[in-house]
């Protein structure tokens, strides 16, 4: 407990919730910073481990591996895993785009229009998108990322791990035609 009588574990969970309300998933280190600011003693050598264990055990919280490999915590009732992942990867447009393309191809399944990444919450500029696509083309780690174009010239991106090129092309054309098939 801190001097205000707050429970350490509940305060840690509240720190995660507060970040979730702001649209961010947080690491255990960030949670410890928040706890320190609230007067908790977080100087013990095992404070990090203790925080990780408490957050993982909390029924209302979820975690995922962040872009840097460290665990990120969020309250899914306030911040979806999808959105949290996007925000976590925003510092790396290449990774951001690749993971989103893969998730869409895997889960729905569908290719995504390239202009999706210009809109919020991605918020990339056309230049950033172009750079990211070039970087992916040159890096074997992203060799599954491919594109297809519709008959009207719209460009859609997909992952060949989950979508065959022919089917991706069909789905792109279908998506493009939705507005003319009311």
């Amino acid at each position: 407990m801190n001097s205000a009588g707050e429970d350490w574990e509940e305060a840690a969970a509240e720190a995660v919730r507060e970040a979730s309300r702001q649209g961010r998933a947080v690491s255990a280190a960030e949670v410890l910073e928040a706890l320190a600011a609230r007067g908790f003693d977080v100087t013990s050598p095992d404070a990090g481990e203790k925080a990780e264990a408490a957050l993982r055990a909390h029924a209302g919280l979820a975690c995922f591996a962040g872009a840097d490999g460290a665990a990120r915590y969020h309250d899914p009732a306030l911040l979806s895993a999808t959105y949290a992942g996007i925000m976590d990867r925003k510092a790396s447009p290449t990774l951001l785009m690749a993971e989103e393309i893969r998730a869409n191809s895997r889960e729905y399944p569908r290719p995504v229009p390239v202009e999706l990444f210009e809109a919020e919450p991605f918020g990339l500029t056309p230049e950033q998108i172009g750079d990211a696509l070039r970087a992916m083309a040159e890096n074997p780690a992203f060799e599954d990322i491919a594109f297809t174009a519709t008959s009207t010239g719209a460009v859609y991106l997909f992952s060949s791990r989950s979508l065959e090129p022919g089917y991706a092309k069909f789905l792109a054309e279908h998506a493009q035609n939705l507005a003319m098939n009311p």
């Binding site: 911040l79 979806s80 959105y83 919450p121």
Partner: peptide, 10 residues
């Protein structure tokens, strides 16, 4: 994508 939604669809 929104903080309140697990899924979205362009």
């Amino acid at each position: 994508p929104t903080p309140q939604s697990e899924y979205y669809n362009p």
